[in-house]
Amino acid sequence: MLGAFATHSANAATSFTPTQEASLVKICKALKSDSRIKLNNAIKSSNLSYKLVANGLMCNGKSALEFAVMHEAQKTAGLLARKANINYDEMLAKR
C-alpha cells in the first residue's frame, strides 16, 4: 500500500523520508481499518491536520476519503470528513 501526498503542482516531484512515508502508509492503513482510534493516532503521530490529509493524501491512487469509502470504512470516512469539514453525504452522492 503506497501513500503519497499530491502537491499543488501536478508536475512537482515530492520525495519523503522513510519515516514520513511510513507515517503516510500508516494513515492509509488506519483509514482502511475503519477504526477511529487508529486513524486519530496515525494522524496525530504524523503531525498533519485532518484537512491536509483529506485534501492531499492519496492511498493507492484514491483520495483518502474515497479510499476509506471504497473499503467500506464508514467510521473512518465519516471522522475524516467531519474533522476536515467536508460534506460526507454530498461526496457520496457524487460517486
Rank of each mutant, 00 (worst) to 15 (best):
K51F: 02
A77G: 06
P18N: 13
Q74P: 11
M58R: 12
R95D: 10
K38M: 12
A84E: 08
I37A: 13
M1R: 11
G78K: 03
K38R: 15
L52I: 08
S63G: 14
T17D: 06
A30K: 03
Y50I: 00
C28Y: 00
S35M: 12
V53A: 05
R82H: 08
A77P: 01
A13Y: 11
L65R: 08
R95T: 05
K51T: 08
H71M: 08
A54L: 05
P18Q: 08
Y50P: 00
L79H: 07
N87D: 15
R82W: 05
A6F: 10
E72A: 13
N41V: 06
S33P: 04
R82M: 11
S23A: 07
Y50C: 01
F5N: 10
L65Q: 09
K83F: 05
I86H: 02
C28Q: 00
L48I: 03
I27K: 02
T76E: 06
I86G: 01
A30P: 02
G3L: 03
I37E: 15
N55G: 09
N41H: 05
T14W: 09
Q74Y: 08
A10K: 14
K26H: 09
H8W: 13
E90Q: 13
L92P: 07
A81F: 00
A13I: 10
N11S: 13
K62F: 05
K29V: 10
D89Y: 12
A77F: 00
T7C: 13
E66N: 11
A93L: 10
A30V: 03
K32L: 04
E72T: 11
G61Y: 01
A10T: 11
V25R: 14
K26Q: 14
N55V: 02
A93K: 11
S15Y: 13
N60L: 02
K38Y: 04
A84C: 01
M58H: 08
A4H: 11
L57S: 06
M91W: 15
I43Y: 07
K32W: 02
A6L: 14
L92C: 08
K29G: 10
Q20C: 04
G61M: 02
A77D: 04
H8F: 13
A64H: 04
A42D: 01
M91V: 15
E66T: 10
L65V: 09
Y88R: 12
